[in-house]
């Protein structure tokens, strides 16, 4: 494990040195197209202290983070129960699936114009687009999670006389939990992708807004800062979710060990 980390670190360090040399001393790449490390540093300083695109960096970050969190929670809060319901009840599946099948192939970003038309450039439109994008993987994976439960586990629960709600809480959900978490992870990624795209199209704050304004200003350093922030936040929130998963499913960790 340590060896793997060391190799990963070396790869990134090599890339960073190459980046520094290529944009600086060797002048292989024009700074107008690809920013040098000092350019990025200057942009980071500017957006952190003086502000850029209507706000300071932390304001943009918090704003994007807030919308992702909101959209993600709404998406999994609706998607997971819907998927579980469709997995458990053939009737619910028969009713919901046709609608779901029509909506599913629409690329989430295609909802942006409608969302802006309905809800304007504010937060509500973004939450709506994130919701539409992020709830799909949660539905599909929760559904599959239920369908993949071994029939004899369900029979064992019935044989023990497990009442309905206890069955849902103590059998159905834990049995489907590994796939529910897979769905949530994909939902989280979809949340970030969609948010940045939605902010690119029209927003007053946020990381997408930084990217959009930086593009119009032809400001590669700032574009880099925006991208790096999205990458770091995306990574950090995914880690956080993985941590929640590890703690919620102790029996799976035991099985792997």
């Amino acid at each position: 494990m340590k060896r793997r980390y060391a190799i990963g670190f070396l790869t990134i360090a090599t890339l960073a040195i190459f980046w520094f040399l290529a944009t600086g001393p060797l002048a292989l790449i024009s700074p107008g197209r690809f920013p040098s490390p000092p350019d990025v540093w200057a942009s980071l300083k500017q957006v952190s202290t003086k502000g850029y695109a209507n706000g300071l960096l932390y304001q943009h970050v918090l704003h994007s983070l807030k919308l992702v969190a909101l959209g993600f929670v709404v998406a999994i809060g609706t998607g997971v129960p819907l998927g579980l319901l469709m997995g458990w009840s053939r009737r619910a599946e028969a009713i919901i699936n046709p609608v779901f099948s029509i909506i599913r192939p629409i690329p989430p970003l295609a909802w942006i114009p409608l969302a802006i038309l309905w809800l304007g450039l504010g937060d509500a439109a973004k939450v709506m687009v994130i919701w539409f994008a992020a709830f799909v993987p949660s539905v599909i994976n929760s559904f599959t999670g239920v369908r993949r439960i071994e029939p004899y586990v369900i029979e064992a629960a019935r044989m023990l006389g497990t009442p309905r709600w206890r069955f849902v809480r103590e059998v159905l959900i834990p049995a489907a939990a590994p796939l529910i978490f897979t769905g949530m992870r994909l939902s989280l990624q979809a949340s970030w992708t969609t948010l940045v795209a939605a902010e690119l199209v029209g927003a007053l704050y946020g990381l997408g807004r930084i990217l959009n304004v930086a593009q119009q200003d032809i400001y590669p350093g700032m574009i880099f800062v925006g991208m790096a922030c999205v990458a770091i936040l995306g990574w950090a929130t995914t880690r956080l979710l993985a941590e929640v998963e590890t703690r919620s499913l102790p029996w799976i960790q035991m099985a792997r060990a």
Binding site: E150, Y152, V153, E155, A156, A157, M159, L160, G161, T162, P163, R166, E170, V171, P174, A175, A177, L249, W251, A255
Partner: peptide, 29 residues
């Protein structure tokens, strides 16, 4: 129903419950 308890070939335990939780579920029900 619990008056006819079943032992399955595949054991059919609940992997997320401990040994005593598995045994206790029917009594809780």
């Amino acid at each position: 129903g619990p008056n006819r308890a079943v032992v399955f070939q595949q054991f059919a335990l609940f992997p997320w419950k401990t040994v005593s939780e598995n045994i206790a579920l029917g009594l809780r029900n």
